[in-house]
Each structure stands twice: as C-alpha cells, then as structure tokens.
Design a protein around this nucleic acid. Structure first.
Length: 158
DNA sequence: GCCAACGTTGGC
DNA sequence: GCCAACGTTGGC
C-alpha cells in the first residue's frame, strides 16, 4: 500500500448482545448505529469515521465480554432518525431536522473470527496495554483502535 | 444484584 | 461556573 493512501482507521464498538449481537449484524448485513447518546462517541461517528474503516464488534454486559468479529463503516454520517421519534426511548426534544443533535453511521458485517477475543485475552496481551478501551474507568461505547492493536486482535481471533 | 466510575442535569 | 444529585455503564 502506498504511503500516501489514507489509512483506514479502526474502531471498537460495543453492543449488548441481548439488544443487538454480532450474529444479528451478520444476518442483516448492515445496520444504522442508532441510539448513541454520548457526545464523544457521536463525534467519532460524525467527524472521524470514514467509509471502509474497520470495526471491532464488541459484546458488553454479557457472560463473556469480548470482540466477536469484524465490521466496516458502511455509510457517511447522517442524523440518527430515532432522535425525531417522539415515541422512541432515544427521542431528543432539542433536536430539529435542521439542527440534529445525534449522528450515526451504518455498520456492515465484514468477517467472522474463528474464536471471540475475550476481555481476558485483551487484558493479557502486553501489546494492548494502552488500548483506550482497556483504560480504567473507560465506559465509552466507541473508542479508536490503532493499526497495531487492530492487527494484534485479529491475530488473536484466528 | 452490586458497585465504582463516569457523564449529565439543574439549583444556586 | 460550581458541584451535588442522579442516571447509566459494564465488569464481576
């Protein structure tokens, strides 16, 4: 790959499998990442994600938390439609069509791992010791992943 | 179900 | 702008 090519970035995105699992993504192929109501996470989607960026799909709040497989950012950012839906849990009274508050991207299924990379495995890997997601107290549902970290995690998933 | 850590809200 | 109270996240 040429040095001048814009390197695809990588992101870790959390989802509760009871709500939306990696298997669900495989089934539906592509899904709007709606319902994010945290400004930092929103800014990553709205300002920094590019179509084609890798997504490490992480299961949280479940028996075995960990990265389940790979997705891809599959759309440019656009306003989260659930913010306009008065009956939706994620309704946002401050939002107007002209001035949306919340933005999202579509995430598409990309590839299965041979085995999930559990939180325990992530913590045990020296090369991942400075991962944003593993920082104490971190709760962000979307965090950036470096190219090195992404490679290490993909190797662990083989 | 517990609880620590964090983000947000709202009174002042 | 401060900060206490509250709600949420997420591992255990």
């Amino acid at each position: 790959m040429s040095k001048s090519a814009a390197a695809a970035r990588a992101w870790l995105m959390k989802s509760e499998p009871d709500v939306f699992s990696f298997a669900d993504l495989r089934k539906c192929k592509s899904e709007p990442w709606s319902g994010v109501r945290n400004y930092q996470a929103r800014n990553f989607m709205r300002d920094e994600m590019r179509v084609g960026d890798l997504v490490l799909f992480y299961h949280s709040s479940c028996e075995e938390p960990g990265v389940q497989g790979l997705g891809r950012v599959a759309s440019k950012p656009y306003p989260d439609p659930t913010q306009f839906d008065r009956k939706h849990d994620s309704f946002e009274p401050r939002a107007t069509k002209d001035k949306p508050v919340w933005w999202l991207v579509d995430v598409a299924w990309d590839a299965d791992f041979a085995r999930p990379v559990t939180l325990t495995m992530l913590r045990a890997e020296q090369k991942l010791s400075s991962m944003v997601m593993l920082r104490p107290g971190n709760r962000l549902s979307i965090t950036p992943v470096t190219a090195t970290e992404c490679n290490v995690i993909q190797r662990l998933g083989r």
